[in-house]
Each structure stands twice: as C-alpha cells, then as structure tokens.
C-alpha cells in the first residue's frame, strides 16, 4: 500500500521533470539492464580470445577486437557489470561508514566529535588521488584493497555532510524526548536522525557515485585499478589507446561509456536537488 503511494508520487513528480532528468533516468536504466543481463547479450566470453589483435569492425566482431584479440563489444558490456558493480559497492561502503560516523559524531558530540572531525580535516587536506596511489603502492592493487582505500578516503566527505545535516536534527525536542525515554544511540540514529537526513544524503549518493566511478576508472586507466583479465572501461581505454593515432575511434567507446553514465547520474541528481531544496542557489 505504502509502496504504491510512493510510486504514484514519484510518477507525478517525474511527469513534471525536465528533459535532462528523463535522459538521465533512461541512461541509468539502460546501463543497469546491460550489467544484469551481460551474459545473455554477449556473443563471446568475457576474456575469451576469439580473433586476431585489433581486427576492424565487421560481421563477426561488431566493434572489432582489442589488443589481445578479444571481442570489443563483449568486453564493453561486461565492463558495465564490473566497473559499475565495483563503483556501486564502494559507494555503498562509503555511505555506510560516512553516515554512521557522521550521525554518531553529531549525536554524541564532545570529544568523539572533535577527534573524528580533526581526523577528517587532515585526510581531506591530502588530494585523494595522491593518497590512494600512496596506499596502493603498499597494499598492492587488488579489488578489495581498491574498494576499501577509496571508500575510506571518500567517506570523509559523506561524514561532513551527514554530520552537518544531523546537527540540525539532534537539537530537536523529539530527539531529547527519545534520549530521556532511555532509547539507545543506534535507535536514535536509525529512527530519529536518519529519516530527517535522507534527502540530502540521497543526492550526495549520486554525486559520490559519479566521483568514485570516475576515480576507479582513472586508476584503472593508469594501470593501478582493476587488473586484467577483468573487463573494465578504464583499462580498456589504456590497452587500446594506440588505435587513436590511426584515427580509429574504438578506444573512445569505453571512455564514452564512462562519460555517458556520469552525465546521466548528474542530470538525475540535479533534478533531485531542485526538487528537494528548491535549487541550492535560488534564494
């Protein structure tokens, strides 16, 4: 009953949404479809060598083959699954860490808040790409290391937002009442703070996802992110970049795939922000 109400409300807002939001939603749905049904949409295996290196576009290989003779179209579709999947897991982890610590800092206050805030200040003083490179030198590049490093570095931004938003909530009377009633920290965070902090956090989730997604792609492009033979857009650009010098646009396809998804997500977030805050800079 409640779900159908929410959907109805969503549909009502969607009908009023600008064209860019529609484009963004369509892009996201398309990518999710590719990621979920990748094995059924592709003619070959993810890292199966099926031809010669750098074969041109043609009947057997719709978009040609890559530097090792693997089907480009197949790897592009699998790339949706791997790159988006890893970016999504990382963002989810970022949010869990950032918002829980942020809410805790705001609810508990005192030295806990002070200590966490200073740590975050320091972490944010170092550019995250440089920091990530430094840590990956030591831990080596594996997917779990990648996810944890990026999630920790990026959770600092979520922490700041979550803390700032919940600061306004924890001074409310109903939080005071809950505290006097003897409710625990977890209950207060979950039942009083979270529902009042959802809207800005959802918008931030989209922005952080874009950032993480671009970040992982950049690391993979540098050869320090997702490692072969996993199909991934960033490393696909790197592996096939030589084709550019012959005027072949194939290496631009994975790069364009990255760009299109972030554009889509940004369009949707922009619409969402206008919806929830009456636009940030409209006073």
């Amino acid at each position: 009953m409640e779900l159908s109400m929410v959907l109805k409300e969503f549909w009502k807002e969607l009908k009023k949404a600008p064209g860019t939001a529609w484009v963004g939603l369509a892009i996201i749905v398309f990518y999710v479809f590719l990621a979920v049904f990748a094995p059924f949409l592709t003619p070959y295996g993810e890292s199966e060598v099926v031809g010669y290196e750098f074969e041109p576009w043609g009947e057997n290989f719709a978009l040609g083959t890559d530097n090792l003779g693997r089907d480009m179209a197949t790897r592009l579709i699998y790339g949706a699954r791997n790159t988006i999947g890893i970016a999504f897991i990382t963002t989810a982890l970022t949010f869990m860490m950032g918002s829980i610590t942020g809410f805790m800092a705001a609810t508990l206050g005192g030295w806990f808040d002070q200590a966490l805030s200073r740590v975050v200040d320091i972490l944010m003083a170092i550019p995250s790409l440089i920091f990530a490179l430094l840590i990956l030198t030591i831990t080596g590049t594996s997917i779990p290391a990648l996810i944890i490093v990026i999630a920790v570095l990026d959770s600092t931004r979520v922490f700041r937002l979550a803390r700032a938003v919940s600061m306004n909530v924890v001074v409310m009377d109903y939080v005071e009442v809950a505290k006097l009633r003897g409710e625990g920290l977890w209950w207060i965070m979950n039942r009083e703070v979270l529902p009042n902090a959802t809207a800005p956090l959802v918008a931030e989730f989209g922005l952080r996802f874009c950032f993480v997604f671009l970040f992982i792609s950049a690391l993979s492009f540098l050869g320090l992110g997702i490692q072969p033979p996993t199909a991934d857009w960033g490393s696909m650009v790197r592996d096939n970049a030589t084709l550019i010098t012959f005027g072949d646009i194939t290496p631009l396809l994975p790069a364009g795939a990255i760009a299109m998804l972030t554009v889509g997500v940004n369009f949707v977030v922009d619409w969402f922000l206008q919806l929830t805050s009456g636009l940030r800079d409209e006073h």
Binding site: T20, C210, L214, S217, A218, F221, G234, V237, A241, I244, T245, F246, G247, I249, P251, L252, A255, G256, I258, A259, T262, V263, V265, N266, F267, D270
Partner: peptide, 23 residues
C-alpha cells in the same frame, strides 16, 4: 558544464588528440 564535469579526463584528452592531432 554539467556534462563536461562528468567526463573523465582521458576521454577529453583522446577526443582532442583524435580531432586536433590525428585528423
């Protein structure tokens, strides 16, 4: 601007290479 913020740096770089250097 929203679109260009979303582009990875290497995408912009290779597009420029393709048009201004190769073509």
């Amino acid at each position: 601007t929203l679109t260009s913020i979303s582009f990875p740096e290497f995408f912009v770089a290779y597009i420029l290479i393709l048009f201004l250097a190769v073509k």
